[in-house]
Design a protein around this nucleic acid. Structure first.
Length: 666
DNA sequence: GTAGGGTTAG
C-alpha cells in the first residue's frame, strides 16, 4: 500500500495494468488501447494485486537518475543536480523530492517551493521535506515555523515524520507548549517523537522535565540516551550523567549505537580536563565498538590538558583516522607552542582541509614565524574568511602593521567580505601605524558592515586614542555605557597618558577604580608613564606600591622602566639605579634607555657609562649608546673624550643609522 | 534513490 501511493503509473501503464489484471476477472471485453469503463482502483491497489516487479521498481533509468541526483545533492553539487533534473525526460516523485531536498538543505526555500508547486504528484515525503525546509529557514528567531505549521495543517495525510518534524521545530525554538500539544495529539508516537521532546526540554534548560520525560519513555534507544547525557553534561551534572549511562546503557546493545552515549560522556569529561575519568569510560567501550568519534574525543581530552604524548599514542593506535583525528592531533601540537611535530603530521596527512591549513598558518604565526605562515597561506588550495583573518592577525601580532593592511586590501580585491574579526585586526594595525586617516576609513567600514560590539568598540577607542584623536575616542568611550570592560578603560587611560594628558589619565584611573573595574598591569604602565611625564614622583611611587600590594600585580619590566624614567627625570638617579638593582628580572633596553636618557638630562656621565655598557651588551650593533655618550661629552666641551667614543664606535664597525632602538630617539 | 531525534575540533 505504502509503495503504491508513491508510484502512480503513467496513464498508458495504468491501462495496460487494468487489461491484464482486472478486466478478465470482470469478464468485460475491451480492446487493447481503450480505457476500461469501471473505475480505476487506485486506492485499493496494493502489492498483492500487482506483480512485485511493477509495484516496487520504477524503470531502471529513473532509478539511476534518482541515485545520481541524490548523490549530487548530498555532496552539495546542487547546480549540477539541477541540470540533470532539467534535462531528464522521465522523472518520478522521488526525483522531484530529491531535488527539493537539495534546495531545502542549502536553505533555498523559495526554489524548493517553486518545485513543490510545479510537481505533478506529491506524496507525504514531498510535504515533509517542505515542512522541514520552512522549519530550518531563518527569519528572525522563529524562522518560518508558522508557514511550516500551515503546510502541516494543509497536507492531505500525515505520517509520524510529519509530526516529528513539526515537534522538533517547535522544540528547537523553545515553543515547548506547541511541541507538547502536538506530541499529545499525534496518533502514534515513536521513539523519535520522545527524543525530540526530551531534547527540546534540554535546549530550553528544563533539565528536570527532560529527565522526567526520559524516565517515562516506553522505549529508549541510543539517541535518547545520548541526548539526555548531553543535556546533563552541559548542565555540569557529570555524575548524574554517569548514573544514567550505567542504568540505561546496559539495556541497549553496542550494535544499536550505544557508543554514541559513551562518546558524549567521554567528551564531557574531556572538555573539563578530567582525562582519567574520560579514559576509564573510553576503556569500557569494547575495542570493536569504538568509533572514530570515540578515539577523536579521547585524543582531544589529552591535548586539552597538554598530555600530547598520550594523545599521540592513541593517534598512532588508531586503525582508521578521519580529517577530524588529524586536525585534533595537529591542533594539539600547534597549541602546545611544537610546530615541528605539527608540520610532520601535516605533511603526512592524506587530505588536509581548510581547517588544517588555517591551524598550520596560525601555528606558525603564533610561534613568530611569519614567513612560513605566509608561505603556507599562499599555497592554500582554498581560503575562507578564517584564513584571511588568521593571516592578517598574524601580521599584527608580529608588529608588521603595513603587511596586515596590504593583506587586507588584497582580501578586498579578491572579493572576500571582512567581518568583525578582520576589522578588529585592521584597526589594531592602524593603531600600530598611528594612521588616523586609514583608521577613519576602517571606522566607516565598521559602521557599514557590522553591529558594533565591545571588542570592536575597544579597537576603535584604542585606535583613536593612540592616534591622538582623544575627543573621538572619548565620544566612543562614553557611548558604550553598559558594556565597558577593562580594555575600554585601559585604551582611554593609555590614550591620555601617551599624549601627555596626565591629569586626565589619573582622573579616569580614579574613576575606574571607584566604579569597581579592576586595573591591570597595562593600566599601571600607562599610569606610571603619565606620572613620569608630568613629574609626579610621589604619586607614581604610590601607584607602583599599590599595584603590588593592593592589586597583587607582579611588576613587569615595563613598570620598572616607567619607574626608572619617573625617578630619573627628576634627577633622582641614585634611586633609579637602586630600582634597577632591586629588579628580580634582567633589565631590558627600555630600563637602561630610561636611565641613560635621565643621565644625559642631568649630566651624570659615570652612570651614563654604566647604562651605555649594559645597552651595548643587549644590542651590540646599536649606535644609540655611543651617540648619546658622544653628545654628552660634546655638550660639556670634552672633545677628546667625545672623539674616543667615536673611534671605539668606528672600530666596532657600528654605523649611525643601524638599530632603530627607542634609545636612539631619547 | 527522497523526509524526522542523539556524538567529536576551531
Amino acid at each position: 500500500m505504502v509503495g503504491m501511493k508513491m508510484i502512480l503509473p503513467s496513464p498508458g501503464k495504468l491501462m495496460a495494468l487494468n487489461c491484464t489484471l482486472f478486466a478478465p476477472s470482470r469478464g468485460l471485453p475491451f480492446r487493447h488501447g481503450h480505457l476500461p469503463r469501471f473505475p480505476i482502483p487506485t486506492v485499493s491497489m496494493n502489492e498483492f494485486m500487482l506483480p512485485r516487479w511493477f509495484a516496487s521498481k520504477p524503470p531502471p533509468e529513473i532509478f539511476a537518475l534518482n541515485k545520481r541526483i541524490s548523490h549530487l545533492v548530498r555532496t552539495g553539487l546542487l547546480a549540477e543536480a539541477r541540470v540533470l533534473f532539467d534535462s531528464s525526460s522521465q522523472r518520478n516523485t522521488i526525483t522531484w523530492n530529491s531535488m527539493i531536498t537539495g534546495y531545502v538543505k542549502s536553505g533555498e526555500i523559495s526554489k524548493a517551493r517553486d518545485l513543490f508547486d510545479e510537481m505533478p504528484t506529491r506524496d507525504v515525503t514531498s510535504w515533509n521535506v517542505m515542512i522541514l525546509g520552512y522549519t530550518r529557514s531563518h527569519r528572525g528567531v522563529h524562522g518560518f515555523v508558522d508557514e511550516a505549521r500551515a503546510m502541516f495543517e494543509q497536507m492531505p495525510e500525515r505520517d509520524h515524520v510529519s509530526w516529528n518534524t513539526m515537534i522538533s521545530a517547535y522544540a528547537r525554538i523553545g515553543r515547548m507548549d506547541e511541541a507538547l500539544k502536538l506530541f499529545q495529539a499525534m496518533p502514534d508516537r515513536t521513539v523519535v517523537s520522545w527524543n525530540a521532546m526530551v531534547s527540546g526540554f534540554l535546549w530550553n534548560a528544563d533539565m528536570a522535565r527532560a529527565v522526567e520525560l526520559y524516565e517515562q519513555m516506553p522505549e529508549r534507544d541510543s539517541a535518547s540516551l545520548s541526548a539526555i547525557i548531553s543535556g546533563l553534561v552541559q548542565n555540569n551534572k557529570l555524575d548524574e550523567a554517569a548514573g544514567i549511562l550505567e542504568k540505561y546503557g546496559s539495556k541497549i546493545c553496542w550494535k544499536k549505537g550505544l557508543v554514541h552515549a559513551y562518546d558524549t560522556l567521554v567528551a564531557g569529561y574531556a572538555q573539563r580536563g578530567q582525562v582519567k575519568e574520560a579514559r576509564a569510560l573510553f576503556d569500557v567501550i569494547p575495542k570493536g565498538e569504538k568509533n572514530v568519534v570515540s578515539w577523536n574525543t579521547m585524543i582531544m581530552g589529552y591535548t586539552r590538558v597538554g598530555d600530547i604524548e598520550s594523545a599521540r599514542r592513541l593517534f598512532d593506535e588508531m586503525t582508521e583516522r578521519d580529517t577530524f583525528s588529524w586536525n585534533t592531533m595537529i591542533s594539539g601540537y600547534v597549541h602546545n607552542r611544537s610546530m615541528e611535530n605539527a608540520s610532520n603530521l601535516f605533511c603526512g596527512m592524506p587530505e588536509p582541509d581548510i581547517l588544517t591549513w588555517n591551524l598550520m598558518v596560525s601555528g606558525y604565526a603564533e610561534s613568530g614565524n611569519l614567513w612560513l605562515a605566509l608561505d603556507l597561506f599562499k599555497r592554500m588550495p582554498k581560503k575562507n574568511l578564517v584564513s584571511w583573518n588568521t593571516m592578517i592577525a598574524a601580521y599584527g601580532t608580529n608588529n608588521d602593521f603595513k603587511g596586515a593592511i596590504d593583506l587586507f586590501i588584497r582580501m578586498l580585491v579578491e572579493g572576500e567580505k571582512p567581518d568583525r574579526h578582520t576589522l578588529s585586526s585592521v584597526l589594531a594595525a592602524c593603531t600600530g601605524l598611528v594612521d588616523l586617516h586609514l583608521g577613519l576609513q576602517i571606522h566607516q567600514m565598521v559602521v557599514k558592515t557590522v553591529i558594533p560590539d565591545l571588542p570592536i568598540n575597544n579597537s576603535l577607542i584604542t585606535m583613536y586614542s593612540r592616534c591622538g584623536a582623544i575627543s573621538e575616542a572619548l565620544l566612543l568611550f562614553n557611548e558604550v555605557k553598559a558594556y565597558k570592560d577593562f580594555i575600554s578603560w585601559n585604551a582611554m587611560i593609555g590614550g591620555y597618558a601617551s599624549h601627555g594628558l596626565a591629569v586626565e589619565a589619573l582622573e579616569l584611573f580614579e574613576l575606574m577604580k571607584r566604579i569597581g573595574v579592576k586595573p591591570t598591569y597595562i593600566t599601571f604602565i600607562s599610569i606610571l608613564n603619565a606620572c613620569a611625564h608630568s613629574g609626579l614622583v610621589e604619586e607614581g611611587r604610590g601607584h607602583f606600591q599599590s599595584m603590588t600590594q593592593e592589586y597583587g600585580i607582579e611588576p613587569r619590566v615595563e613598570h620598572f622602566a616607567a619607574l626608572v624614567d619617573l625617578l630619573g627625570r627628576q634627577g633622582q638617579l641614585e634611586e633609579a639605579m637602586e630600582v634597577i638593582e632591586s629588579m628580580a628580572m634582567e633589565p631590558d633596553k627600555a630600563v637602561w634607555g630610561a636611565l641613560i636618557g635621565a643621565c644625559r638630562m642631568h649630566n651624570n656621565i659615570e652612570l651614563a657609562w654604566v647604562a651605555a655598557e649594559a645597552l651595548m651588551r643587549i644590542e651590540p650593533d646599536s649606535s644609540a649608546p655611543y651617540v648619546l655618550l658622544y653628545n654628552m661629552y660634546a655638550d660639556v666641551g670634552q672633545w677628546d673624550e667625545a672623539t674616543k667614543v667615536r673611534e671605539v664606535m668606528e672600530k666596532h664597525d657600528i654605523r649611525k643609522h643601524t638599530g632603530h632602538s627607542r634609545v636612539g630617539s631619547l
